[in-house]
Simulated scan of single mutants.
Amino acid sequence: METYGGRRGQSERDAITVEIGYALVSAAFAAAVVFGAVAGPALLFELPGTVELVLVRTAVVLAPVLFLARVVSVLVRFRKAPQPSQPGRTSPDS
């Protein structure tokens, strides 16, 4: 991703920005879905107090853990992805 001995070009900075945005949006969506799936029954239905408490606390713990795991996995995968040798062109193997 970095050029030798120098700064990143505009296209590389744009690619990093897009990837960070994708990581944050997809992580927020995944965390919201998990929170809704785990805590949803407790918020929609009248359940015994202990069950409600366990479901909501589990969701409160799981959602941020999933958020962080998703962000890290997307950004690590992006860093390891092979980049084309010349800007605007794909590698011969693609």
Rank of each mutant, 00 (worst) to 15 (best):
G88Y: 10
T50D: 10
G9C: 07
T58N: 10
D14A: 15
R57F: 05
T50A: 11
T58Y: 04
T3W: 07
V34K: 04
L24Q: 03
S91P: 13
V65C: 13
V54I: 15
I20L: 12
G6T: 06
A27M: 09
M1S: 09
V51F: 06
F78N: 14
S94M: 00
L62P: 02
L75K: 13
P84C: 09
A63P: 06
R79W: 11
R77Y: 07
T3E: 08
L24S: 05
V33G: 14
G6M: 02
A32Q: 09
F29Q: 01
G40E: 00
S91H: 13
L44Q: 13
L68N: 12
S94N: 00
A59M: 08
A63W: 02
L62Q: 05
G36T: 11
S11Y: 07
T90D: 06
P48H: 03
E2F: 12
D93E: 10
K80Q: 12
V56Q: 01
A15F: 07
T58P: 02
Y22H: 15
R8C: 05
Y4G: 13
R8K: 14
A69N: 14
S94E: 00
R8D: 11
P87Q: 10
R79Y: 12
V34L: 13
L44V: 12
A27S: 12
A23V: 02
L53V: 00
V25F: 10
L75S: 09
P82C: 01
A42I: 05
I20K: 14
V61P: 09
F35Q: 03
G49D: 10
L44K: 15
L47E: 00
V54E: 02
F67P: 01
R57Q: 03
S94G: 01
G36P: 11
V38H: 01
V61A: 15
L43Q: 06
V76Q: 11
P41T: 07
R89P: 00
V18M: 14
I20Y: 09
A63Q: 06
A31S: 15
